[in-house]
Design a protein around this nucleic acid. Structure first.
Lengths: 175, 175
DNA sequence: GCGTAGGTAGAGGGATCACTCTACATCGTC
DNA sequence: GACGATGTAGAGTGATCCCTCTACCTACGC
């Protein structure tokens, strides 16, 4: 049997991704996690902790989805990254980035904001390393975030646009 | 005296922008709008309507902020747009795009999603027209959205990155 | 066989919240 | 000076929600 803690985190992530952070009640979250209310509160002693658990679980899954088994050439890596973001949105994030969603739902939480910062920094760092575009982390992040936000409006066209922007990135090395 | 309806919409916009969509109670919104509860419910018969009123008011203000009195050359327009987005974030949107925030707070609302779509389409359309980059609306939107999302993490560096990406846009006309 | 760790089931408290309703004030117009 | 439109003030209602707590079950090591 899978570890109770990961089972809970996976269920919470699914619930928040599907219905946002405001709507699901703790009883809904309990159903999604597949445990009793008591056990849920044992591992995540408040609803805010449930949000954190879901985000941490998602962080790992997102990194794995983006950066495992990438192609060989760095140009192909760049295109593959954007395609994988599109695939991720289609399969898992119909309602947009979960981290931004969590911060938007609770703008006062310093903890959530720090989680968001760390998540995005890690994505940018790994993307720059994998594409050989060191020093261009922020530009990469602008494209990745823009793609994430526009995907729900324009689907594949957003992926294509991100690729084009990425190619431009590779062209002009300096400002 | 200013029109009651606009006074309410302006107050609501301020409240949601400052504290997000989940936190403020209707009584908080009443205080922000500066009217009585009865009057507030007369113009916006439910809390959901208050959200819509705030977004419609913001839509107008955002377009005015971005597209009024732009410089003459199209290259300067492009840079000015990104700078204005940065200024807007600093002054008005410390917590990110209000439209995405509203949809994230209530993912089930078809009305909000349509409002978001129309808002972004109009921004993209006007940006393409003002910069002479017709046909590149989606690429422009990816940069604008990416800038909006990364600004809270990287401030001026995000604006600079957006400008660089914009210059690349102007270079390669075709795919 | 028994203790312990870790689980289920679900009722109830206390607080909050969206929304309604009654009663009263103000002001421009005829 | 009466009147209608438009506003304020604020108490009350019904529902929801987060969280706690009691009571019980099951598997496993020794």
């Amino acid at each position: 049997m899978t570890d109770t803690k990961t089972k809970i985190a996976a269920g919470l992530e699914r619930a928040f991704a599907a219905r946002g952070f405001a709507e699901p009640s703790v009883e809904d979250l309990r159903d999604a996690a597949g445990v009793s209310l008591r056990t849920l509160y044992k591992y995540t002693p408040s609803r805010a902790d449930m949000v954190v658990a879901a985000l941490e679980h998602r962080h790992g899954r997102y990194l794995a989805h983006l950066f495992e088994d990438l192609p060989e050439t760095q140009q192909a890596v760049l295109d593959a990254l954007f395609e994988r973001v599109g695939d991720w949105m289609a399969a898992e994030a119909a309602h947009g980035c979960l981290f931004h969603g969590a911060v938007a739902a609770e703008p006062g939480s310093e903890g959530l904001r720090e989680l968001l910062t760390r998540h995005k920094a890690e994505v940018a760092r790994r993307a720059a390393a994998a594409t050989g575009l060191d020093g261009r982390e922020i530009e990469l992040l602008v494209i990745l975030e823009g793609l994430t936000q526009t995907w729900s409006l324009h689907r594949d066209a957003a992926v294509t646009s991100a690729k084009r922007l990425g190619h431009g990135l590779r062209m002009n090395g300096a400002a």
